[in-house]
Each structure stands twice: as C-alpha cells, then as structure tokens.
C-alpha cells in the first residue's frame, strides 16, 4: 500500500467528490419532482395520458442507463454541434458539458423508477383517509398536497433511501463521458501515477461514506417532523 499520490491529487479528488455530490443533488431533486408527475400521469383516468406515461416508464426501465447516457451524449450532443447557432451560441458552455447530459439521463431514469414506486405508495394509502379529507371539504389538489403525497412519501422513506443510494452508485457512469466525478478523478490519478489499486480503494470508501450520509439524512427525516401530516 502506497498513498504518496494522495496529497498531490487531493484537489482533483475533492473536485470529483463535489461533482458526484452535485449529480446526486441535481438529479435526485428534479427526479423526485418528475417522478410525482409520472405517478400521477400513470394513474390518470385518461387512457391516452396513462398509457403515454406507461410507455415512458417501460422504455426508460427497459434500457441500460449507460446506453441512455451514450444516446444523449453522443447522439443529442453531436446533433447540437451541427447547429451553428447553438455551437457558437451563448448556451454552448453548458451544452458541451457532459455533466448536464449525465444529470438529464439520471433525472429521466429516476422519474421512471421512482414514479412507479410513488404510484404503488399512493395506491397503498387507505381510501378512507382520502374520503375523510373530502368530507372535510378539501378539493382534489388540496387533498393531494396535504394528505395523499405527505403520507405516501413518508411511508416510502426507507425505499427512497435505497433508491438514492442506487442513484449515487449510478453517478459513477459519468466518468465514461469524460466527466471528472469521483471515479473519474480516481481514474486520472491511477493513469498518471501508476498506482492502480489504492485510488480505487479510497473512492470505494468515500462512496461508502456517502451512502452512510444519505441513509442518515433519510433517517433524520423519518424521525423528524417533516412530512408528518398536520396535528
């Protein structure tokens, strides 16, 4: 074991860690918002709406994440580059950056997986609770906002914690499209210093610590007052 590479490359590794955390935060937050939309869409009374969202879920869940990243990054990215007004336009610094393609893929993926999860959670809420809300004179939107969603999300917290950990592990795919996430940073260190195993061991431990962090945040929410229906 030799860790002489650690200090000279600390900046790079921290940059990678920051990138990984940003990916989790961006795609987790946007993902859950979209997932609620997907769940509601799937439960829509309109046949067209529910089957459209059903198709979306099937397509996203039925293809490997890496393939989706490649399709967006190489496919969409090259299509953008062929348009001069985009290629030389003010948005190009963002559009050229692999980070946003990975983030977008993860958001779409989360929306599909978490959407199904939330749909099953919403189905599991006893109808009596919703009927009671209605008896109190709450409209559909108000019932959803005050009773249905908070109850669902709270019940789903343990499952969502697991899904967030899965999301964290999925972010490691970012390194395949030249995004310097935690694994990408470790790969650079490995390639430049020829210490092949130690950087991998280090990032494995950091990923474990991140998992621990995610689980303890969810644990706090579970024990706390957030998402607890009114008292």
């Amino acid at each position: 074991m030799n860790f002489s590479w650690f200090l000279p490359n600390l900046g790079l590794l921290l940059q990678g860690l920051e990138c990984t955390i940003l990916l989790i935060a961006v795609s987790g937050t946007l993902g859950i918002v979209l997932a609620i939309g997907v769940a509601l869409g799937r439960m829509s009374r309109s046949r067209v709406v529910s089957s459209t969202f059903g198709l979306y879920t099937s397509v996203i869940r039925g293809t490997p994440l890496l393939v989706q990243i490649y399709i967006l990054y190489y496919g969409l990215g090259s299509a953008f580059a062929a348009l001069p007004w985009l290629r030389w336009g003010p948005l190009w610094p963002y559009l050229r950056n692999g980070f946003w393609y990975v983030a977008l893929t993860l958001v779409l993926s989360n929306a599909a997986y978490w959407g199904e999860l939330i749909r099953s959670g919403m189905r599991a809420i006893p109808p009596g609770e919703l009927e009671a809300a209605s008896a109190f004179g709450m409209g559909r939107i108000l019932t959803l906002r005050r009773i249905w969603l908070p109850r669902t999300l709270r019940n789903l917290l343990p499952a969502l914690a697991g899904e967030t950990v899965m999301l964290m592990k999925a972010t490691a795919l970012a390194s395949t499209v030249a995004v310097t996430d935690l694994l990408g940073a470790a790969d650079i260190v490995r390639a430049q210093t020829f210490h092949v195993y130690e950087p991998l061991l280090l990032v494995a431990i950091v990923y474990l610590l991140l998992t621990y962090g995610i689980e303890s945040v969810y644990g706090r929410v579970e024990r706390g007052k957030v998402l607890r229906p009114g008292r």
Binding site: S78, A81, R87, N97, A178, T180, G184, I188, A191
Partner: peptide, 19 residues
Amino acid sequence: VKTYDTQEEVNADLTSGRI
C-alpha cells in the same frame, strides 16, 4: 482538462466542439 480513454474519443469530442 478532459481525459478520454482513447484518441478516437478525443477526436470525436474535438469535432463536436466539446473541447
């Protein structure tokens, strides 16, 4: 600095303006 596994990937991203 963006690092790639192969020279082909560097060429591809240079062509598409990512670098």
